[in-house]
C-alpha cells in the first residue's frame, strides 16, 4: 500500500516535470516563467524548513535568511573558487560530455556542502538559544541573521559589499527534484516518532517534558534540519542567480519566508507549499507595477489575518479525495498528503 502510494506520487511528479520540459521546449514557458518556477522551488524548500521549526515544533524563528545566506555563500564560494579548475581538469580527463556530467556532481556536492554548513550553524545557534522561549527566541534569531549579514558584508574573501559572482549552473531540473526530495524528507520526518515529539513540544512543552521527551534535543534537531534545508535553498539560489549579495538575505527576506508559512498555515506541509507559490507568483507577476505590489500583498495579508488567522490551510493538509477512505484506521499526523 505504502509503495503504491509513493509510486503514484513519483509518477505524478515525473509527469509534471515532463510537461514543463515539453512546454518550455515548445516556447510556452518563457525564461522569466522558468526562473519564477525555480524561485518557487527555492522558497518552497525554505518554507518547509521554517515550517518544521515554527509550524511543527512551535519555535518562532525570524533568522531563516541567515541560514540561507550561509548555504548560499558556502556553495557559491566553492563553485566560484574551485568550479573553474575542477571543470577544466574534468574536461581534460574525461572529455567534454563526461567532464560536464561529473562537474554536475561537483555542483551537487557544493549544494550538499552548503546545506551541511548551514545545519552545523543551526546546531551551534540552537544549543544556546533554544532554551529561550517565544519572543525571546525570535529576537535572538533576528540577531543571528543580522550578524551573518554584517559579517558577510565585511568579509573581503567573499566579495564583501560588491557581492560574490557565481556561474549559473543549476536550473529547473535540479531545483524541482531537490524540492520534491525536501518535501518527502519533511513529510517522513513529521510522521516519524521524532516528528511527533516535535509536535508535542509545540502543543505543550511542559507536558512533553513530563512525558520524558528531551525537548532541547528535539528542538535542536528541528532547528538543524530546518537550517539545513535553508542552506540547500541558498545553494540553489547561489548557483542560479549569477550573483549573491549579503543584502539579498536581510531581515525582510526572513520575514517574507515567515509570511509564506503563516499564509499557508503553520503546521501544514501543503499549506506552506501553497504559501510559497502564492507569494512568489504575486511578487513576480506584479513586478511591472511596483507601486501596486506592496499594497496588494499587504492588503492580502491583512484580509487573511482577519478571516483566516490560521492561514489558508490551518494545520490540515490538502489531500486527494480518493485517499480519504484509503487512510483507514491509522491516521497520519499530517492527515495524509
Amino acid at each position: 500500500m505504502r509503495w503504491t502510494k509513493y509510486l503514484i506520487w513519483l509518477a505524478a511528479a515525473g509527469a509534471f516535470y515532463a510537461l514543463t520540459l515539453a512546454l518550455s521546449g515548445a516556447g510556452f514557458i518563457s525564461r522569466f516563467m522558468l526562473m519564477t518556477m525555480v524561485q518557487i522551488c527555492i522558497y518552497i524548500i525554505m518554507a518547509l524548513g521554517l515550517n518544521l521549526i515554527t509550524g511543527f515544533t512551535g519555535q518562532l524563528s525570524i533568522g531563516h535568511a541567515g541560514f540561507m545566506s550561509i548555504g548560499a555563500y558556502a556553495a557559491g564560494f566553492l563553485a566560484s573558487t574551485y568550479g573553474g579548475r575542477v571543470s577544466a581538469a574534468l574536461t581534460e580527463a574525461l572529455g567534454g560530455a563526461g567532464g560536464a556530467a561529473v562537474y554536475y556532481i561537483f555542483i551537487l556536492a557544493t549544494l550538499a556542502a552548503g546545506a551541511f554548513v548551514a545545519a552545523a550553524f543551526g546546531v551551534l545557534l540552537g544549543l544556546p538559544t533554544l532554551r529561550l522561549r517565544g519572543d525571546y527566541l525570535a529576537i535572538a534569531t533576528i540577531g543571528f541573521g543580522e550578524i551573518v549579514r554584517i559579517v558577510l558584508l565585511n568579509t573581503k574573501a567573499l566579495g564583501a559589499s560588491s557581492g560574490l559572482p557565481v556561474k549559473n549552473s543549476v536550473g529547473w531540473t535540479t531545483a524541482y527534484w531537490l524540492m520534491l526530495l525536501s518535501v518527502v524528507l519533511i513529510y517522513n520526518f513529521v510522521n516519524s516518532s521524532h516528528g511527533r515529539a516535535c509536535i508535542s513540544i509545540r502543543e505543550n512543552e511542559i507536558a512533553a517534558e513530563t512525558m520524558g521527551i528531551n525537548t532541547t534535543k528535539y528542538k535542536v534537531m528541528a532547528f538543524a534540519l530546518g537550517a539545513g534545508l535553508a542552506g540547500l535553498a541558498g545553494g540553489i539560489y547561489a548557483n542560479h542567480m549569477y550573483l549573491i549579495h549579503p543584502n539579498s538575505f536581510n531581515f525582510l527576506k526572513s520575514f517574507e519566508i515567515l509570511v509564506m508559512v503563516v499564509l499557508g498555515g503553520l503546521g501544514s506541509i501543503t499549506g506552506c507549499i501553497l504559501g510559497a507559490v502564492v507569494m512568489t507568483v504575486m511578487n513576480n507577476a506584479l513586478s511591472a507595477f511596483p507601486e501596486m505590489r506592496m499594497i496588494v500583498i499587504s492588503v492580502l495579508l491583512v484580509v487573511m489575518m482577519i478571516f483566516r488567522p490560521n492561514g489558508l490551510m490551518g494545520t490540515t493538509e490538502l489531500r486527494l479525495p480518493f485517499r480519504r477512505k484509503a487512510a483507514g484506521g491509522k491516521e497520519d499526523v499530517t492527515h495524509g498528503l
Partner: peptide, 16 residues
C-alpha cells in the same frame, strides 16, 4: 521593471 534595490531582484528583472 522594479529591482527593489537588490541584486537578486535585479537578475529577476533582467530575466523578465
Amino acid at each position: 521593471a522594479d529591482n527593489k534595490s537588490e541584486a537578486g531582484e535585479a537578475t529577476s528583472a533582467t530575466t523578465r
